[in-house]
Computed example of a mutant assay.
Amino acid sequence: MNSLDYFNARLEATISPMDFLKSNQMDPEKYFLIDVRNGPAHVRSLTIKDANVIPEQELQNRLSEIPKDKEIIVYCWDVWCNTAAKVAKVLLERDYKVRELTGGIAAWQEMDFPVSETAQETIGSDQCGC
């Protein structure tokens, strides 16, 4: 793979927080945003506003909640976390259209974009799985 192919693939597989925010404001029905972070609930108390909370550990049991007619945007903690990439792979293998939000929730918060307190309790373990 040459450099041009790499960057084209990277842009196809990811979306920046700014690009997602703008695009979602223009067409809010286009996307289904998923917070796939694992770990204890107290460290996941904030999520991106309007995100669906489906931890990676629960994904197999909750696939029916994810629409096939929308572009799926997944995110996890930060650039060092690969949980979103693991989830993206699983969804792509099932014919979903998926992109990863670059920088995860850390980049989102750094840009002071809207977050909300999570109201959903999940079963997941206390292990991150990154």
Rank of each mutant, 00 (worst) to 15 (best):
Y6T: 11
F7I: 12
A9S: 14
R10T: 07
R10A: 13
R10S: 11
I15V: 13
M18Y: 14
D19V: 02
F20E: 01
K22I: 12
N24E: 06
M26T: 03
P28H: 06
K30N: 07
L33T: 07
I34P: 01
I34V: 12
D35I: 07
R37A: 05
N38P: 02
P40W: 04
A41T: 13
A41H: 12
V43N: 03
V43F: 06
S45I: 07
L46M: 15
T47F: 03
I48Y: 05
I48P: 04
K49R: 14
A51K: 02
V53F: 09
V53W: 05
P55A: 08
E56S: 10
E58W: 09
E58F: 08
L63R: 04
S64Y: 08
E65T: 10
K68W: 01
D69L: 01
E71Y: 01
I72H: 05
I72R: 00
I72N: 03
V74F: 05
W77C: 01
W77F: 08
V79Q: 05
C81I: 01
K86V: 03
K89T: 12
E93I: 06
K97I: 11
K97A: 11
K97F: 05
V98C: 01
V98A: 02
E100V: 09
L101W: 06
T102C: 00
I105H: 05
I105K: 05
A106N: 09
W108L: 05
Q109I: 11
Q109T: 11
E110D: 15
M111E: 14
M111D: 08
V115G: 09
S116L: 07
A119T: 15
Q120N: 02
T122Y: 13
T122V: 15
T122H: 09
S125P: 10
S125M: 10
D126G: 15
D126L: 12
D126N: 15
Q127C: 05
